[in-house]
């Protein structure tokens, strides 16, 4: 059984059909790409899967459980984490806090424990801090731990966002245009990073990206959508030669 199974996902924004009958089986350990022209509905699909929007129709099965109707923090706690197209770090907070807060679903102490600062509170806080620093160290970001997130260079902010997503201990990681705004050197590093975390954390990754270099190099399977409809699916080579994809991207006259 696939780890993440999306069946007939459909979403309307008022009279606009943003996503129509989207299906996907994501097997454990896969790295799948989702591409399509601007406004094709890619980010909407991520928003539907993570619970930010409630789908008009369709089901999202994860690990034998239908996620539709759950609140986003519950879905994240079950093991689906994401990054955002535009960086959405908590700017005024330190990098360490950014990563610590993402442990929220595993905090067992309550308000009273936090006020009394009892044993339980101190142990849990220590564990969270330790793990957050470990995670930051994986990406060599520990030097920024006490820095406000907004003061970091762009590339580092992107990495902190991925680190923060990993702090929720996901099984599936959704990356929404991670290479946006990066220069070719940074993109090379990003590709290495994605491969590395995939192995180290045993992740299943689903990625939206406009940089064909990233998609074609790291994805095993690609899905292409346009105007909310799936228009192609296959390996990178198949997609590159698919006439419908070329049409969607370059227009009909290109033929």
């Amino acid at each position: 059984m696939p780890l993440l199974q999306i069946k007939g996902l459909t979403h309307w924004f008022g009279g606009l059909r943003a996503v129509h009958n989207f299906n996907l089986d994501l097997e454990e350990g896969e790295l799948v790409g989702l591409i399509g022209p601007n406004g094709a509905g890619k980010t909407t699909i991520f928003n539907l899967v993570t619970g930010a929007y409630k789908p008009t129709k369709g089901e999202v099965w994860f690990n034998g459980e239908n996620l539709v109707g759950l609140r986003p923090h519950q879905i994240t706690a079950k093991g689906i984490a994401r990054t955002f197209q535009t960086i959405r770090l908590w700017n005024e907070l330190t990098v360490l806090d950014n990563v610590c807060i993402a442990h929220a679903s595993r905090i067992k102490y309550g308000l009273v424990d936090s006020i009394l600062r009892n044993q339980r509170y101190r142990e849990e806080e220590e564990q969270i801090k330790e793990r957050a620093l470990e995670l930051l160290a994986v990406f060599g970001l520990e030097k920024y731990a006490q820095e406000q997130a907004k003061n970091l260079p762009y590339g580092a902010q992107r990495q902190v966002e991925i680190t923060r997503a990993l702090a929720t201990e996901p099984r599936v990681l959704l990356l929404d245009e991670p290479a946006a705004g990066m220069n070719p050197g940074e993109i090379g590093e990003l590709m290495k990073l994605i491969q590395q975390i995939r192995q180290d954390f045993g992740l299943t990754i689903w990625i939206i990206e406009h940089q064909m270099r990233v998609i074609m190099n790291i994805c095993e399977r690609i899905k292409v959508i346009d105007f909310g409809e799936t228009i192609a699916e296959g390996t990178p080579v198949e997609i590159q030669n698919n006439p419908r994809v070329i049409e969607a991207y370059l227009g009909e006259e290109a033929f």
């Binding site: 993570t50 930010a52 923090h73 994240t76 908590w90 005024e92 907070l93 807060i101 993402a102 929220a104």
Partner: peptide, 15 residues
């Protein structure tokens, strides 16, 4: 504070 900085990101990061 995460809610102040970005509520949607907070909810999606399991808060």
């Amino acid at each position: 504070e995460a809610i102040r900085e970005d509520e949607i990101a907070a909810e999606l990061m399991s808060v």
